[in-house]
Amino acid sequence: MDIVLGQLFTGLSIGSILLLVALGLAIIYGSMGVINLAHGEFVMLGAYSTWLLQSAFGLPFLACLVLVFFMVAFAGWVVERGVVRFLYYRPLDTILATWGIGIILQQAVRLSAGAELRYVQTPEALAGSIDLLGIAIPSYRLFILAVTAGLLLLTWFLVQHTEFGMKLRAVTQNREMASCYGINSSRVFSLTFAFGSGLAGLAGALVAPIKSVAPDMGTNFVVDAFMVVVVGGVGSLLGTVASSGILGGSTAGLAFLLNDTLAKALVFLAVVVLIRFRPRGLFVDRVRR
C-alpha cells in the first residue's frame, strides 16, 4: 500500500513538473502555432534568474518567483517582437530561428554566469517533509504540485474567461476575421508569447532547487514539454494536463519496476507509437469551421 501511494505521488510529482514546463509551450504552440525550440532556454533563464536574485540580492524564494516571471516574460516579449513575429506561418523558419535563439541564450549564460553548476536554495519552510497517509512526502514537491495547479487554473481562467483570452481564441481560429473586428492580433500574439515565456521562466525557478542549474539544462525540458503537448493534442489545455499525468505516471511506474533510463526510453517508444495512430494527440477538438 505504502509503495503504491509512494509511486502515485512520485508520478504526480513528475507529472506536475512536466505540466509546469509544458504549460507555457502549450499556450504558445497551441494558440500561435509557433514551435518555440527556445522554450527550454526560457526555463533555463528562469532558473538562472532565480539563482542570481537569490545569491546576488539575497531575495527570498517566493519574491524571486514573481520577479522571475516578469523578467523571463520580458525576454520572451523581446524575442517575439525581434524575431518570431516576422516568421508567423513559416514553421520551418521559426524552428530554425528559435533554435538559434536557444543556442545564443545558452552561450550568453555560459559566458556571463559560467559553465559550472549553480545551486538554488530550497526555502527553509519547504525543506522538510510531511507525513501523508503514512508516507513521507517532501514539502517542496507538494509545493510544486500546488503552484502548478494554481498556474493551470490561472491560465485556464485567462484563456476562457477574460476578454484577452477571448481575443486570443479568436485570433487563433481566424486571424483575419479577428482583425476585421478590431482585435490587434500582433499585440495579442506578443503578449501571449510573453505570458508563455514567463510561465517557462517560472517553471525554471521552481525546478531550480531540485535540479542542477546549468546552461544546457533546457534541452531536456524542451523535449519533455513537446512530448506532453503533442501527446495531449495541440490546443487542448485539458489534453496537456491529462498527458502530463499519463506520462508522469508511466515514467514513475516504469522507473520503479525497471530503471530511470529504460523507463524514459519505453515512454518515448509508447509516444512514438501513439502518434503513429493518433497523430493529433489524445484530445482533439472536432468542430466544423
Binding site: A170, S179, G182, D285
Partner: peptide
C-alpha cells in the same frame, strides 16, 4: 483592426464565423 474601429464592418464570403465560439461569443466579438 483600426479600420474596423472607424466603423466598417465586414461580412465575408464563407461568413468567417468562429466555429468554436458560441453564438454569444461570436456576436460579442
Amino acid at each position: 483592426h483600426r479600420r474596423a474601429g472607424l466603423g466598417i464592418a465586414y461580412v465575408p464570403q464563407g461568413r468567417g464565423i468562429i466555429g468554436r465560439f458560441t453564438i454569444r461569443e461570436n456576436i460579442l466579438m
